[in-house]
Design a protein around this nucleic acid. Sequence first.
DNA 1: GCATGTGAATAGATTCACAGCG
DNA 2: CGCTGTGAATCTATTCACATGC
Lengths: 230, 230
Amino acid sequence: MRGAASPLRRIPEATVARLPLYLRSLYELAAADVTTVSSERLADLCGVNAAKVRKDLSHLGSYGTRGVGYDVGVLLSQISRELGLNQDWSIAIVGLGNLGHALANYRGFGARGFRIVGLFDADPTRIGEVIGGVRVCHVDDLRVVAARSPIAIGIIAVPAPVAQQVADRLVDAGVVSILNFAPAVIAVPDHVSLRKVDLSIELQILSFYSQRHGASGAGPGDAPAGEATA
Amino acid sequence: MRGAASPLRRIPEATVARLPLYLRSLYELAAADVTTVSSERLADLCGVNAAKVRKDLSHLGSYGTRGVGYDVGVLLSQISRELGLNQDWSIAIVGLGNLGHALANYRGFGARGFRIVGLFDADPTRIGEVIGGVRVCHVDDLRVVAARSPIAIGIIAVPAPVAQQVADRLVDAGVVSILNFAPAVIAVPDHVSLRKVDLSIELQILSFYSQRHGASGAGPGDAPAGEATA
DNA sequence: GCATGTGAATAGATTCACAGCG
DNA sequence: CGCTGTGAATCTATTCACATGC
């Protein structure tokens, strides 16, 4: 019962997170007219371990040929299907400050089936502006706009203090996937997928490892390495 | 042997990645004049499990009081120190397209000890432009500029095809931490820390879960749910 | 022969559950 | 009594190593 092929097996989260990586390398291989690839080659291209590639791919089914490798075209279409990239996904961006603006102008969404269909902001002076062919609407109209043409993925690019209420509005408008760029923890119902991108967290993690590992080319001027490690 | 306090224990990677999260909530608590916090409260604020908080914090040493909780100020300073946030970190951004530009204009770096000291691009028309008080230099001058005032963290915001060579130049200039925004796998020597932020990967992961879970408010027009799951 | 696919081994992270202490 | 700190149990992910099949 259920749909044709894919979503019967349970695919580990870690694997899902790597599939897009494989996909990208496969596109490059295809563009270079390479028709077959081994797990080892693909692993190299993606900066991972070959056994990991094989185990990951085995979760989608057995699409390799022993002694030969994987057919690039077949893998491409299997992974695309698995990731749901056969269909288009509509995106809305909320918050058009520095970052939101940059995202809205980013070409490369459309390239792979992600289409920006809505731009929203709370600042009246921004309403009506057209970015990348899409008109900026007031965030109060989110629900109405979403009712006309559904939004699959909402991108939050507002300041931290209003991130939660924007998330609430997105959920209220029927959005089931959210990508949060605001430096704030937000809560969503179980049926909504949430991922976050947090610049300052990334920098702090790097800071941690810089401090330990290479205490070399570190500080700028003030506090070179006062209580350094090495 | 070795420095005063912190870096003797081995702190799990997963824990390191959460420390900045705790830190942020602690700043908010401190700003609200809260002096004590329980693992459960902190866990709520960060959207994680209370046992996880306790175990994470235990890796830094025992700074809690049984029956009471943790002192906000003490935790703040312990985590800050552990993450290396007592010192300032110098940042260079390479690539000043949409994204690089947005990052360069982003206030909030400086707030927590991250200071943009260099901006680099390969496009001659952008050289000399001043963004956020910093002059854009040619990427060929990276090494020279870095020699004058060392760069701790390099941010790559160039198109994928040139990401690797930019990484090489950063490493060559003595940078030991790199944050890569380009949708490309890059390789760096062992002594360099590398983290990545990849928008299109995040979207594809969300696509995967949208497809499975809520097959509700999905497609926009073309391919609504052709071979849908539910 | 060669590279996949996979059980088994290992490592790592999360969660449980409770002893221990303020 | 309440909350921390932590061993033990569980779950997840990675890696190994080799039988399997083209």
